[in-house]
Simulated assay, not measured.
Amino acid sequence: MKKKLIGLSVAGALLLGSAGVYASTNSKTLEVFYNVKNIKIDQVSKMPEDKPFTYNGTTYVPLRYISEQLGYPVEWDSSNQTINIGKTNDKTAFYPGKDLEYLSFQENKYDNSYKYSYNKDTISDNIGNKYSNYITIKNSFGGAGESLLEFPLNGQYSTFKAILGLTESGKDLPKPLTLEVFLDEKLIETYTVSAGDMPQEIEFKLKSVNKIGFKLNSQLGPFDTEVGLFDARFYK
């Protein structure tokens, strides 16, 4: 068994392969063991050029190597200090929370709320899929409500795409809700969502539209109603 002393920053580079990430500028010496003689994927030997090693009872293998061998590309997002494995954000898209901020939020009941996020935290839909890019609109516990969330477009965008569904916290919805979509205050689409419905992909055109509005309507009842526009994005 071979052992070797390596710097912590070198170990960081090895773990991530060519992703270009380093653990720290403050080096620390580690004692590691090169005791892995082979790696088999689907019974085929595939040993990486950067040899795996063992440290404190854990074996470390280059992340890029393993991911790409399993069919998942790896990408380092330096601006967010995030490693993306597999599907990444559409680089031609524009996202609420990153490229757009809301214009207004109107409600007819106190404590109704909205939220939108770009890669800051995650939310789940009613069947367990997780998203880090989303818009949610929530009518609060205890009653009927209408909430309208608007975003400014200023005629710059051509298309909107998202996955519409209930959030995990709203999946036990006892009565259907509706989400209305307004373009420049003109109603162009109404979606009805009930408990148990599968999330659905939605898309509509935005040519020369100055603002878009999403209006949640829910019926009276002792429950929260929350709908999500998951992976919501705009295209020019």
Rank of each mutant, 00 (worst) to 15 (best):
M1H: 10
K2G: 06
L5M: 02
G7L: 00
S9G: 01
A13C: 01
L14P: 00
L14M: 12
L15G: 01
G17C: 07
S18M: 01
A19S: 09
V21Q: 08
Y22L: 03
Y22E: 10
A23F: 08
S24C: 06
S24N: 10
N26K: 09
E31K: 13
E31R: 11
N35T: 15
V36H: 03
K37A: 12
I39M: 07
V44M: 05
S45T: 08
K46P: 00
M47E: 03
M47N: 03
D50A: 15
K51Q: 13
T54F: 07
Y55C: 04
N56G: 01
G57L: 10
Y60R: 11
V61K: 09
P62L: 13
L63F: 13
Y65W: 15
I66L: 13
I66S: 06
I66C: 08
E68Y: 09
Q69N: 14
Q69F: 05
Y72L: 14
Y72G: 07
Y72N: 14
V74Q: 10
E75V: 15
W76M: 05
D77F: 05
D77Q: 10
Q81T: 14
T82I: 12
T82H: 12
T82G: 12
N84L: 13
I85A: 11
I85L: 14
K87I: 15
K87R: 14
T92K: 10
A93E: 08
K98W: 02
D99F: 03
D99V: 06
E101S: 07
E101W: 02
L103D: 10
L103R: 11
F105L: 05
F105G: 05
Q106D: 15
E107I: 14
N108F: 06
S113E: 10
Y114N: 11
Y116R: 05
Y118H: 10
K120L: 09
T122L: 05
I123C: 06
I127T: 05
G128D: 02
N129S: 06
Y131L: 05
S132F: 13
N133T: 12
Y134L: 06
I135Q: 06
I137N: 10
N139F: 12
S140D: 13
A144S: 12
G145F: 11
E146G: 08
E146K: 13
L149F: 06
L149A: 08
F151P: 03
L153F: 01
S158E: 01
T159E: 01
K161Q: 04
A162S: 15
L164R: 02
L164F: 03
L164S: 06
L164D: 08
T167Q: 03
E168Y: 07
G170P: 06
G170I: 07
K171P: 01
K171Q: 08
D172L: 12
P174D: 02
P176K: 14
L177W: 12
E180W: 03
L183Q: 06
L183G: 02
K186D: 07
E189A: 09
E189C: 04
T192K: 11
V193D: 09
V193R: 10
V193H: 09
S194R: 13
S194N: 14
A195R: 11
A195P: 05
K205P: 00
L206I: 01
K207C: 00
S208I: 00
V209R: 01
N210P: 02
K211P: 01
F214Q: 09
F214H: 12
K215L: 15
K215E: 15
K215D: 14
K215F: 12
L216T: 15
S218R: 10
P222A: 11
P222N: 09
P222E: 07
F223D: 15
E226P: 07
D231Y: 04
R233F: 04
